[in-house]
Write a protein that binds this DNA or RNA. Sequence first.
DNA 1: GCAATGACGTACC
DNA 2: AGGTACGCCATTG
Length: 113
Amino acid sequence: MTPFTEKVISVIRSIPEGSVMTYGGIARAAGSPRGARQVVRILHSMSRKYKLPWHRVVNAEGRIALTDDESSSLQQLFLLSEGIVFDDKGVIDLQRYLHHPGPDEDYLLPPPE
DNA sequence: GCAATGACGTACC
DNA sequence: AGGTACGCCATTG
């Protein structure tokens, strides 16, 4: 268990209801801008052991990232129940639902342009 | 300990 | 605009 992993767990647990975060965003918030795939791995192991809001994690496009149809539809169900809206293409409006970490975090958003 | 894995992201066809 | 290729690196077998 590395500090990065603990940070990731902490970040995920801090995602408020009705908000989402991307894998890359969590990785950046945890101090490893290129650690998106580690977030995936961590989610795999942690979601079984710990109680994490794994359903509030989506990919950079704002889509459900799960490969299993059953699990992904379940995730969508969870998000819907928290008030998150999907558009026609099944995409979440990240501008609106993405959770921004506090000012303590060096969370760098991509340039608005 | 080394090789494969993975619910990603980004750069390139 | 849509598909492919590859880097990333903690965790797992």
